[in-house]
Simulated assay, not measured.
Amino acid sequence: MQIYTTVDEISADAFANGGAVAIGKFDGVHRGHRALLARTGEAAAERGLDPLVFTFANNPLSFLKPELCPAPIMSRAQRLDALAAAGVTACVMVPFDAALAALSAEDFVTEMLVQRLHVKYLCVGADFRFGRGGAGDVALLEEMSTKLGFVVEVIDEVEDEEVGRVSSSRVREAIIAGDVARAARMMGRPMSVRGEVVHGDARGRDLGFPTANLGGEVEGLLPIDGVFAGWAIVDGVRHPAAISVGVNLTFEPEGSPRVEAFLIDFTGDLYGKRIEVQFVERLRGMVAYSGVEALVVQIEEDVRATREILAMH
């Protein structure tokens, strides 16, 4: 995938055939986003245009009203990887800064979409807003498109028969609440975090359940504390895993929260590797146990439940 991190990187002939442009935040790259991406790809093929995504490296609220900005579901790198996996071949991911915030809605269309991206087809969600103060909307796009020679198509929200409306805000709420199964239903894949495996206190190994501890900056939004069934992706290979998020209440109730994954039936050295941890279902909350024996019994039950759940996935 070709990635542009500033508009100045876009050469005059970058989209010489004309751009079929999908615009959005794409946080979570959920099923609604993928419907928009799929339609953009179809339109590009039908019209002989260059398909591309325009998005921001940061949520505009992080610049405009940081106190109101929600936690991102994905890191920038995770979003780019998910867009590439969805078939995107070119992505313009620029920082939302003072210059963009000051751009009027009309200037955004003429300077960014028409002059920079050579837009001939534009695909947006029904609630898309743009330009200074969010003054621009779909009605303005449609009005300007007739004058400037491009087509606007609006993609309705995706409705799931089980969980209802699919949106980034609802995915975020589900993850934070620990309902990772509902989040996965809306995303069309398990939600995940990733990071580097670091040395821990080796307590899991002493108990017979060595865990991969994610340290440093962990990419992705963490769910509420608890134990989860899921997967660990190591060097492109998926392994079943029982995952713990939070503080070890039995041994270190005042310790720092962390992500630990016990890779079931895995042998090998993971230290220093970057792995991805995918969450499938929450098993239980965090509990302080009376001693090692009670804790080991519970871990054995967690592993058994994880095997059973993953067998259905």
Rank of each mutant, 00 (worst) to 15 (best):
V158E: 15
N213Q: 13
G200N: 10
V218D: 14
S192H: 07
G208W: 10
N248T: 14
S167P: 03
I243A: 04
G226D: 09
A241E: 02
V237I: 15
E219S: 02
W231T: 06
G178V: 11
T211H: 13
A229W: 13
V193M: 02
V227G: 00
G216H: 06
N213T: 15
G230V: 02
F209C: 02
R170Y: 00
M187S: 13
R205I: 07
E157L: 14
I155G: 00
D201R: 13
S167L: 04
R172F: 10
L214N: 08
V247M: 05
G188E: 10
A184H: 03
V247K: 13
H199A: 14
R194N: 08
M187V: 01
M191A: 04
V227F: 05
E196M: 11
A232W: 06
D235G: 03
P223L: 08
A241V: 07
H239E: 04
R185P: 00
A202G: 08
R189G: 01
E219A: 11
H199L: 11
G236C: 07
R185M: 10
E196L: 07
R165D: 03
G200V: 10
R172Q: 10
V158I: 12
S168A: 08
V158A: 09
T211A: 13
P223G: 09
M187H: 12
R182G: 01
A229D: 10
E162I: 14
F209W: 07
V247A: 03
A174W: 06
V180C: 09
P240R: 13
F228G: 01
I175E: 08
I224C: 03
G220F: 11
V163N: 07
E217P: 01
D225I: 07
H199K: 09
S169T: 15
A174Y: 06
T211E: 13
G236P: 11
R182H: 03
G200W: 05
V193R: 05
E157P: 11
R170P: 02
I233T: 09
P210Q: 09
A212M: 09
V218I: 15
G236D: 14
P190D: 15
A212V: 14
R189T: 15
T211P: 07
R182E: 09
R170T: 02
G204R: 10
E159W: 14
V198W: 15
E217H: 12
D179Y: 11
L222C: 00
W231N: 00
L207C: 06
E219T: 07
L222I: 15
D201P: 01
V227R: 03
V171F: 02
G200E: 13
V171R: 03
G236I: 15
